[in-house]
């Protein structure tokens, strides 16, 4: 077939009209976003929030089943799409689930390798994976648990960002990283020494990475407080311990959900806005940081905590 004939098809006005009939592109269309911690809580809400803006979502979690579960929810809602091609993982749809332990560099490398074969690149990485280890009955935290806390909350986030940086640099396209720290990073409390210290380190990690990865990649974080619903960070024991600590009346027979609700209400009352904080509130802030809406912001930690006077910077 000769080139003129080919051109007359490629640039046929009727075909062009068909292209123009397509809906306008969404904010995160054409993007591939890795959400580490997507199996539960804030990460899961973030995955669902970002896909709504058109992004492809790589759902990553230590727990493979829950990562896959989030990916499946997305596919069920948005469909697999059309087009039958792609070898191995590359035949995937708008989301995939991958297992990864962020404390192990080789595991993170394998995860990104799978992302490359599935989608060909990355545009943003969100890390919500984190851990809270309560001290023992005597209020003491074992060295092993201290290490684990830092391994996940600080070193893990660093490894995920560091490996992403290699890809961002190769790719040469502007990108974004969003970590998840905590209100506790700047508010000292009794009973969460390891966690709070790790989150304080994570706050500064955000700033260091922002410097390191500038100008190509923006690095920011959200600092949540007291997101009880949907979080695996509030198991029954921890909720009961907190209710006891704050002298909130409850009965041992109550369902966990009802206990959680009590705690959430208490936390809300303690904040300036007096509103409960949901995973979706964190996801919204993460979306802003990933998108072009906050394209001039890097190296910052945005609190989404309902307004905690204790957390105001001096």
């Amino acid at each position: 077939m000769d080139q003129q004939e080919a051109f007359d098809i490629e640039y046929w006005l009727l075909e062009d009209a068909k292209l123009r009939r397509q809906p306008p592109e969404k904010e995160l269309d054409r993007q591939i976003i890795v959400v580490v911690g997507a199996g539960a809580g804030i990460g899961k809400a973030t995955a669902h929030r970002l896909v709504r803006e058109g992004a492809h979502i790589v759902c990553v979690d230590l727990d493979e089943a829950s990562a896959n579960q989030t990916a499946q929810e997305i596919i069920a809602k948005y469909g697999e799409g059309i087009g039958v091609a792609g070898t191995g993982i590359s035949d995937c749809g708008p989301a995939i689930g991958l297992a990864c332990d962020i404390t192990v560099r080789s595991s993170v490398q394998q995860m990104y390798e799978a992302v490359m074969l599935a989608y060909g690149g990355i545009d943003a990485v969100v890390v919500t994976a984190g851990i809270f280890v309560p001290p023992d009955k005597a209020g003491y935290i074992a060295d092993r648990l201290w290490e684990k806390t830092f391994a996940i909350n600080v070193t893990g986030a660093y490894i995920v960002a560091d490996e992403a940086n290699k890809i961002f640099t190769q790719q040469g396209l502007p990108g974004a990283i969003v970590l998840t720290t905590s209100a506790n990073a700047i508010v000292a409390k009794k009973g969460s020494l390891a966690y709070d210290s790790s989150k304080a380190a994570a706050n500064h990690l955000v700033r260091e990475l922002a410097v390191e990865m500038a100008p190509l990649v923006r690095v920011n974080a959200v600092a949540p407080a007291t997101v009880v619903r949907g979080s695996t960070m509030f198991p029954r024991d921890r909720v009961i311990a907190s209710l006891t600590k704050y002298a909130i009346p409850f009965s041992e027979e109550e369902e966990t959900e009802s206990l959680r609700e009590k705690l959430a209400v208490f936390y809300a009352k303690r904040s300036l806005t007096q509103l409960q904080i949901e995973p979706e509130d964190q996801a919204e802030a993460i979306f802003l940081l990933v998108s072009q809406r906050l394209a001039r912001t890097t190296g910052h930690v945005i609190p989404v905590d309902g307004g905690l006077q204790d957390g105001f910077l001096r």
Binding site: R30, G86, G88, S90, M116, G120, G121
Partner: peptide
Amino acid sequence: SWLRGQVSVYKRFVGTV
């Protein structure tokens, strides 16, 4: 990812292998 950067000069693309 390097190739993606090269072909995404105007708009970003998603790949299939």
